[in-house]
């Protein structure tokens, strides 16, 4: 287990999340993909802190901030999803065109 393998794993997870965010049609599916991408970024923080950093403790602290902000983002996003479902009865992003000029 070296730094390179941890980074490669994080890149793989990030790319999978990006693929999901591009191909999903359901809003909740897109949010799940975004969570995967945030998680991959977190792995990078912890891996760099573990393998070489002069100030190792700050890596996990950044990770903790990312976790907290991801939870906030998810709460607001899912509230928006509930509100949108109530209004349109449907969560297909190709049919939700309110913000489309």
């Amino acid at each position: 287990m070296t730094l390179g393998y941890c980074l490669a794993l994080a890149f793989g997870l990030f790319v999978i999340g990006a693929y999901g965010a591009m191909t999903r049609k359901n809003i909740v599916g897109i949010l799940i993909s975004i969570e995967l991408m945030l998680n991959a970024a977190n792995i990078n923080f912890v891996a760099f802190a573990h393998f070489h950093a002069t100030d190792s403790t700050s890596g996990p602290i950044f990770s903790a901030f990312v976790i907290a902000i991801a939870a906030c983002e998810m709460a607001v996003a899912l509230a928006i999803v509930v509100s949108m479902f109530r209004r349109h009865k449907n969560l297909d992003i190709d049919k939700l065109r309110e913000l489309h000029g």
Partner: peptide, 26 residues
């Protein structure tokens, strides 16, 4: 993986916040 990288606190926070909170919410 976090446990393997000896970041125990982040591993526990991951389980509590993501699995216990975010996924259940989703």
């Amino acid at each position: 993986l976090y446990l393997m990288l000896s970041a125990e606190f982040i591993a526990v926070a991951q389980v509590l916040v993501y699995i216990g909170g975010v996924v259940i919410f989703v």
